[in-house]
Write a protein that binds this DNA or RNA. Structure first.
Lengths: 190, 190
DNA sequence: AAAGGCATTTGATCTACATCAAAAAGTTAT
DNA sequence: ATAACTTTTTGATGTAGATCAAATGCCTTT
């Protein structure tokens, strides 16, 4: 187990050493290439993933067959399809790597078991949800409801400066809900 | 304490009787008139509210001074400004009653204290966040990103059929991010 | 270096929805 | 009932950003 990752876990909320160990030893280390799918639409999500190095996109395919990105996650973040994970029902989204990545897979079974077993783990989990899910999704609602195309783009640049280098224009425009052509014009400054 | 409310609390996740009692006895019963503010922009959110009867809107005031609704909550739902509550920082939103309402206020201090004290309470709290926050906000992102004005309106009608009777057109249009005029035309079927 | 395959840019139109303005309908107070 | 609001509707016009189409630029592979 990488010390970076245990530190990352501990950074969320300090777990007792033995609980941390029990937790981390259930992680599965994945070293996987670009384009690989962590999750496919229609499957039940069975993991929370911690990205150690790399980048993924969340997307789904609309009625017209167009892929629409809903999220990106990069190194040192948790990623999962929370809705499918919680309800253990079919996911509407897929999750795919945009770069060769090193990822820890945390089984859903571990999360459930440790919640039952350890009070401290519940507190860790609450903190994790709060800081890695709420904070982000709240921002997302905000930018979708209140910002225009140009503002959404600049907002993303600020929040995640590396994305504009690492993610293609087409993938970014899909996430921002802007056509590729319009985003190209925005980026060139009109 | 109303048995309806304890049942509602128990419906989230079954709490041991003594924890439930400790929890419920901290609730403060509010019987307050239309237009009252549960929370004002700039203040720190100190409660989660359970609406027993009535209706509230969440909104903030934009740079041009226009009020923009972000959420409605009606009877038998939890409502709060989660971001302000969690970080105990100034809220950007206000929460105001749209109808005379009966509401239970759960102090943030209770939530924090019971989380520390009871494993079972943490499990209740996780369930509450999952079912009353995630599920809803996820839907919200979806409708904002992928639906057009007409679809957003019909989506709301389905999700909350009573709202179109109880909430003025202006307040609905603001929430849906549609101008009042356009919503009027949509509603009249063009 | 040439050829093929993507990703990005540029230009010309089109459209969903906003904005502005005013009339009509509904509500509340005198 | 009449006046004075407030909310909703209707009509005319404006615009951000989509869509369609074609050109350009950029990697690969040979």
């Amino acid at each position: 187990m990488d010390t970076d990752v245990t530190e990352f876990i501990q950074g969320v909320w300090e777990l007792p050493k033995e609980v941390l160990e029990e937790f981390c030893k259930s992680f599965q280390l994945l070293d996987i290439p670009k384009d690989y799918f962590l999750l496919r639409e229609g499957k039940v999500c069975k993991h929370i993933w911690v990205i150690h190095r790399g980048l993924v996109r969340h997307f789904y395919t609309d009625e017209k067959g167009k892929e629409r990105n809903t999220w990106f996650s990069a190194e040192y973040s948790f990623t999962s399809n929370v809705i499918s994970l919680l309800n253990q029902n079919a996911s509407r989204e897929s999750i795919q790597l945009l770069e060769d990545s090193i990822i820890y897979a945390i089984p859903q079974a571990t999360i459930t078991a440790l919640q039952q077993k350890h009070h401290s783990f519940c507190r860790w989990y609450i903190k994790m949800l709060e800081s890695f899910y709420f904070a982000q999704i709240d921002q997302r609602v905000d930018e979708l409801q209140f910002l225009n195309a140009t503002e959404r783009y600049h907002n993303l640049l600020e929040r995640a400066p590396t994305f504009s280098r690492r993610i293609s224009l087409g993938n970014i425009s899909s996430y921002l809900n802007i056509s590729q052509e319009t985003l190209s014009r925005i980026r060139s400054g009109k």
